[in-house]
């Protein structure tokens, strides 16, 4: 008898989500922020797949997860390009120092 239910997966994903948020908020380095975003996306993905499995939705949930992975790849590529540009302009990638929007 399997004792693992949908709730277990949901708890894992919500904790992972909050860790991702924590990473995004606290880290100075832009690349670390990106890692936090990846964690958030993965948390969402776990939810997709778990609901698909327990909710008897067939394969559509997995397909949504697949699409999220594709989007994450695109997002990572663009974000890295932006980071490189920021590095060229400011010679560092600490986002707390990049606050020219304020002035």
């Amino acid at each position: 008898m399997i004792n693992i239910t949908l709730y277990h997966y949901l708890i894992v994903s919500s904790v992972l989500f909050c860790l991702g948020i924590f990473g995004v908020i606290t880290r100075k380095n832009a690349i670390m922020v990106l890692m936090g975003i990846e964690l958030i996306l993965n948390a969402a993905n776990i939810n997709f797949v778990a609901f698909a499995r327990y909710g008897n939705f067939g394969n559509s949930g997995q397909l949504a997860a697949l699409f999220v992975i594709i989007l994450a790849a695109a997002e990572a590529a663009i974000a890295m390009a932006i980071v490189l540009n920021i590095y060229k302009t400011f010679t560092n990638i600490n986002i707390d120092e990049i606050d020219t929007l304020k002035d």
């Binding site: 948020i21 908020i25 606290t26 707390d96 606050d99 020219t100 304020k102």
Partner: peptide
């Protein structure tokens, strides 16, 4: 509160 830092804003959002 308007620090110009994205992360502060996200904290407010949370």
């Amino acid at each position: 509160f308007q620090t110009g830092k994205v992360q502060t804003y996200i904290l407010f959002v949370v």
